[in-house]
Write a protein that binds this DNA or RNA. Structure first.
Lengths: 159, 159
DNA sequence: CTTGAGATTGCAAACCAATTGTAGTAACCG
DNA sequence: CGGTTACTACAATTGGTTTGCAATCTCAAG
């Protein structure tokens, strides 16, 4: 987290992101409901990829059903509020992408810790794909590995 | 064994790949069974990512159970015979990677057609991840888009 | 502010890909 | 060839995700 940013500034920034996402909801003809606000807040405060199940846990005190989380996340993905990313085992995470820079992740295959890589070197390749005749081009890039901590505790193990 | 496919009819290159994969099986202490041979042949002849379900359909005349396909693919993945890749909706495909160059895919989000991109620009980034302390580093890169055919037939549609 | 249309939600049931338990079978080593 | 044990088939199960539907809530028109 940015150490130069006070707690108030962070909250203000989160508020701005929430407003922006809400605007996207309205603009796309969706209604702004309490479950959606709660889910958006959970996504924003996470500041990284999060499991559906974890979102549900975060908002469950507001009595938001798991099915609702699935439906909302599905809608958010279509609108472009969240992006899906993957674990190497195939399970999905979702990340809030409104007002954020494009980036990718390093995921520890052992403890599942997620780090961020700011660099993206594949934007040029997207143009190449576009030149091949594809439209609505996007990409997904994930790095996997065993982080230092896990490597130490696993030590001699073969994975 | 498939009576419609004699040894002479099998492509020589595919044969070599099969032998190589079988060697990897043995080397890792696995047994070489008929279902595994059948699944390997299906993977090799596909020459690209394929769904578990489709593998099963291909080998079903040999009476290979779906659970067996899952277990074998799981083993193949650990050994490094196949690699998992993803559709944007989160469903998994598996691709035979023995003796093949490293590459990535363009997947049409409409008809699911898969094309190959030979270039890989992220190998350098893997070193960067390695320098951050990660071990067993790998990555996964997929491009998504709507291919020319689909773009024409969908035309005015909003996706 | 009130109200009605229709989008959204909660709940429960259904769904389906993937996994697991187990008894029988087949691979492979000596 | 015979014994050990990894592997398979089959069926049952799991767990994540989706769906149907009645009740509820949003939002804009009046």
């Amino acid at each position: 987290m940015n150490p130069l940013m006070s707690k108030e500034e962070i909250n203000r920034d989160d508020d701005r992101l929430l407003e922006e996402a809400v605007a996207m909801l309205k603009k796309s003809g969706h209604r702004v409901t309490q479950p959606r606000i709660a889910i958006l807040k959970a996504l924003i405060s996470e500041k990284g990829p999060i499991k559906i199940e974890d979102i549900h846990r975060r908002v469950s005190d507001r009595n938001c059903d798991l099915a609702t989380v699935y439906r909302c996340i599905g809608a958010f993905e279509k609108i472009g509020i969240v992006r899906r990313c993957f674990f190497p085992d195939g399970s999905s995470l979702f990340e809030f992408i409104v007002g954020g820079d494009h980036h990718h992740h390093i995921i520890c295959t052992s403890c599942r810790k997620v780090e961020t890589i700011d660099v993206c070197v594949v934007d040029g390749l997207e143009r190449l794909v576009h030149n091949r005749g594809y439209r609505n081009v996007s990409h997904m890039l994930e790095f996997f590995g065993v982080c230092e901590n896990c490597a130490q505790s696993e030590d001699g193990k073969t994975d």
